[in-house]
Design a protein around this nucleic acid. Structure first.
Lengths: 220, 220
DNA sequence: TCGTTATGCGAGTAATTGCTCGGATTCGCT
DNA sequence: AGCGAATCCGAGCAATTACTCGCATAACGA
């Protein structure tokens, strides 16, 4: 294969007519299918073009190289994900802490469950390009900020450092649900898992700071 | 490149003499360097051989294909990691819960910090082969069992389902430290991070079940 | 010393695959 | 209808790279 241009060139053509837009759409959709089915390395551009019902030439009219297709797919999924998740955290009438956390966990699971195979290929197998890392970091940061705002409003929250707590909460929920969906363990069902993760997070948040407080069993 | 044999052949030669063992050692060590420096895809077998000061022919005497090198490296790192971590959890005189958890967290960070670049390539970029997944799962399972035993002995532990709790704890610590080391955020220093993760885990474990209990501030 | 075995070598092979380019086809518009 | 621009096509190029094979050399055992 020819050396990939170090600086990925901009696509030579921008889709102006409707049929060209349909072409790019078909390419992305096909790429999702092909990557999910064959993995990143075996997801060749020729295969993608074929799956899209488009010639390899057309593919390269709209994507400067293979990586660009990957990036487009990733950015698309990230954007969709953020829309869903942040809408959730921005609800005007926040419920009880535990309820809010629970909803968050459930939404994150739903998000990952949408297309698990593709997710796995995109974010575990493919080499995530620099710019995508940046996007990802930015999204997470915004989500952390949202959570931090949420923490400020919840009366039960007792952790001191809201900024750090928000970060940990987002990461924990992200990682645990990620695992649960992408590398499932038959011994635990979804409801129970959601419940326990919710407990984990809630316990942490309602703590003083994990040392100085005292826990008392309520009398029966 | 020729089609990789679907069934990876056993190495044609097993190192019998000392000098052959040195060769394989050099190959693995070079592979670690090359993968860390160039990533998985660009870590070509020729480059590895060259870095090892060994001819490409020799390399293929002891490793049937590129994947086998990757697998050997992974298994090696996993084994080393398990040794360290389990030794820690098997201590005869367990301290206070918080102390045990803290040690665990610190050890996990140390583990990942040992060769972060290589770790990232091995476990985030390279396509982890099936057998390695199995090894990884087995190791994690053993670690979860160890933690579960530890929970049974600690008086402060109040979560009900020790099995599930142990799993969550191991995963959380693994994921959070992984992130902290491999994708650091300048705004938090290590000590603070260890502290907070410890708090997170401890809070969860000393909870009743996250709902029915009551937290009371001790009087000043 | 001498035969046998183990080890090392590296130029060359066979695929694979990202990507180009010249020309055919279709669309939008007057 | 007719023309320029946009779109599409796909054979084939060029680079890459995992891997082979015939042979040279070193170690071992007698």
């Amino acid at each position: 294969m020819p050396r990939r241009s170090t600086v990925p060139l901009a696509p030579r053509r921008r889709p102006r007519q409707a049929r060209a837009q349909e072409t790019t759409r078909a390419i992305l959709e096909a790429a999702a299918r092909v990557f999910a089915a064959h993995g990143y390395a075996a997801g060749t551009t020729n295969r993608i073009a074929e799956a899209a019902g488009v010639s390899i030439g057309s593919l390269y009219e709209y994507f400067p190289n293979k990586d660009a297709i990957l990036v487009a797919l990733m950015e698309q999924h990230i954007a969709e994900g953020e829309t869903v998740m942040r809408a959730l955290l921005a609800q005007p009438r926040p419920g009880k802490l535990r309820t809010v956390v629970r909803t968050f966990v459930q939404a994150m699971i739903a998000l990952h469950a949408h297309a698990p195979r593709l997710h796995r290929v995109l974010f575990e197998e493919a080499p995530v390009p620099r710019p995508v890392w940046r996007t990802l970091a930015a999204v997470e940061r915004r989500m952390v900020d949202d959570v931090e705002r949420m923490l400020a409003v919840q009366p039960d929250v007792r952790v001191r450092d809201h900024a750090l707590a928000a970060r940990l909460v987002v990461q924990v929920i992200e990682d645990l649900t990620h695992r649960f969906v992408l590398h499932p363990d038959a011994t635990v069902d979804a409801e129970r898992y959601v419940d326990e993760v919710t407990t984990l997070v809630t316990s942490y948040l309602t703590r003083l700071d994990g040392r100085e407080e005292e826990v008392v069993r309520p009398r029966p």
